[in-house]
């Protein structure tokens, strides 16, 4: 229920914490990474070069660029206003074949952190998150339970951020809380 207060979306245990993160600017950016004008334009606004490597994320002071595909990135910022960032990107990309689309309202972000975080993901994510296979600063789109998600490892601990489509966010939350059940304090088994 999107409009209800989401501040109850915090669950913790000794080895796990799951919480909804405040809304942030998310912009779907499309363009040709071999086009120097495109790269330059993005860099001029975000101080970041769009990573061309799969699963890579670039993070700076203003924003992060999460790789979504060979010509697609998610520009994320917790400090910049979405509309303004969008306008600046569009301005910089004038005349370049690119697309800048606001999608911040279409995403909910959950933070999943703690020593049991990998165990929680393992219950419904086919991705190998072992430190030898997936490192801080990497991101990957995959499945969590029955929904598509974007997982971004933001910390060594490990700590992750999970991006999920707005209408699937209730399901994803219920799924995470169920999967984490055995690690949560005062687990009610819900």
């Amino acid at each position: 229920m999107a409009e209800l207060a989401r501040d109850d979306r915090l669950r913790q245990g000794a080895g796990i914490s799951i919480a909804e993160r405040p809304a942030r600017a998310c912009i779907d950016l499309r363009g040709d990474v071999t086009d120097a004008r495109f790269v330059h334009a993005v860099e001029s606004v975000t101080d970041l070069r769009p990573p061309s490597q799969g699963l890579a994320a670039a993070s700076g002071l203003l924003a992060s660029l999460l790789w979504l595909g060979p010509d697609e990135w998610l520009v994320v910022s917790e400090t910049q206003a979405s509309g303004e960032l969008c306008a600046r990107l569009r301005q910089a990309l004038r005349g370049v074949h690119a697309a800048v689309t606001e999608v911040g309202d279409a995403r909910i972000v959950y933070a999943v952190a703690g020593p049991n975080a990998r165990d929680v993901f393992a219950k419904g994510c086919p991705l190998d998150l072992h430190p030898r296979a997936f490192r801080p600063g990497q991101c990957a789109q995959t499945l969590l339970g029955k929904v598509s998600v974007l997982i971004h490892q933001v910390g060594q601990d490990p700590a992750y951020e999970v991006y999920v489509a707005r209408s699937f966010a209730d399901y994803a939350w219920a799924w995470l809380v169920t999967a984490a059940g055995e690690y949560l304090d005062g687990s009610e088994g819900k």
Partner: peptide, 11 residues
């Protein structure tokens, strides 16, 4: 996947 590397068929 040529871009994402080896993944499970369900993806």
């Amino acid at each position: 996947c040529p871009w994402c590397g080896p993944r499970a068929e369900i993806e």
